[in-house]
Design a protein around this nucleic acid. Structure first.
Length: 289
DNA sequence: ATACGCCCCTGCAAGC
DNA sequence: TGCTTGCAGGGGCGTA
């Protein structure tokens, strides 16, 4: 159930543990996670066989491993995906979907794609080593050099949509999911339904700063609990229970003002916010006399 | 061209 | 105890 910081932890782990490895065999245990490979599961396996993994890259929540062929093995973790590096002797995980046996730099290890809900998946991007064309429409994320905050400010202020919906639109800014959207909005004292076009440029800039900060802090904490051989992404790093000010805190006191935090339905999931610090509508102030 | 709702899956916890 | 319902951190796609 990863957002950008969790995906980055995985990327860094892959870079450390499978760089330079050669794929010797691929076993697809469930067809759904390779559904994007239209030629089918066995073609997917055949195309990967013999390739060398030459990198580990990320944009937003998408990961890709450039191959020595110039193509890339792409991965999206969806809601429940994990990429694990395991010795073959390790028992199969309950939701193991794809097994990739390695030699060379990662001799005797397996790269495993584990995914309970299978919203995520693996695919091969032809010529996608540098930037897979399938994700060219995804905007840069706040932690990469190509991120253009002023371009995001302009798009936000051109949109009548609610600011939270805009934050979750990966073509505007990538990597932000439901948790970090709520956290950044809480820090900025903004209600997620405030229309983008009604926000000042300065306020949007401030919000983007909070987005970057909350992700950077999460990344720092997620990285510390990272075990050397076990590339984990399941969000159980301890960060979520300890450091969240908004997400999942319905009924608990706001860390800033003490008001009970509220939860509302939003886009088939939930939004958490402080009704006092984050009013839905701008309050027209009555001038003091 | 946007912008929005629907749907893809499985599993868990709470409620009846 | 067993069934039903709601909910879970994502995003592609069809339709307005």
């Amino acid at each position: 159930m990863p957002e950008l910081p969790e995906v980055e932890v995985v990327r860094a782990g892959l870079e450390r543990h499978v760089l330079g490895a050669r794929i010797v065999a691929v076993e697809v245990l469930h067809p759904r996670p390779v559904r994007r490979h239209l030629a089918g599961a066995s073609a997917f396996a055949d195309e990967l066989q013999g390739r060398v993994l030459t990198g580990a890259r990320r944009r937003g929540k998408y990961l890709w491993l450039p191959l020595d062929s110039g193509d890339a093995l792409m991965a999206h973790l969806g809601m429940s995906g994990q990429m694990l590096v395991q010795p073959p002797s390790s028992p199969d995980e309950r939701h193991l979907r794809v097994r990739i046996r390695l030699d060379g730099a990662a001799e005797g290890r397996e790269l495993r794609f584990v995914d309970q809900r299978m919203f995520g998946g693996l695919s091969i991007s032809p010529g996608g080593a540098e930037l897979p064309p399938e994700i060219a429409h995804i905007a840069p994320d706040p932690l990469e050099a190509a991120f253009d905050a002023e371009a995001v400010v302009r798009r936000v202020r051109r949109s009548a949509s609610g600011i939270k919906r805009i934050l979750l639109n990966q073509t505007v800014i990538s990597g932000v999911g439901n948790i970090y959207a709520d956290e950044a909005l809480w820090r900025a004292k903004l209600h997620g339904e405030r229309p983008g076009e009604r926000l000042t440029a300065a306020k949007v800039r401030e919000l983007l700063g909070h987005v970057r900060d909350v992700m950077t802090e999460a990344l720092a904490q997620g990285g510390t609990s990272f075990d050397a051989l076990y590339v984990n992404v399941n969000g159980e790093s301890g960060y979520f229970e300890r450091s969240l000010a908004a997400y999942g805190r319905e009924g608990e006191p706001c860390d800033r003002c003490g008001s009970p935090m509220r939860r509302i339905a939003f886009m088939n999931r939930s939004s958490y916010f402080c009704p006092t610090c984050q009013p839905a509508l701008r309050v027209r102030r009555i001038p003091a006399k």
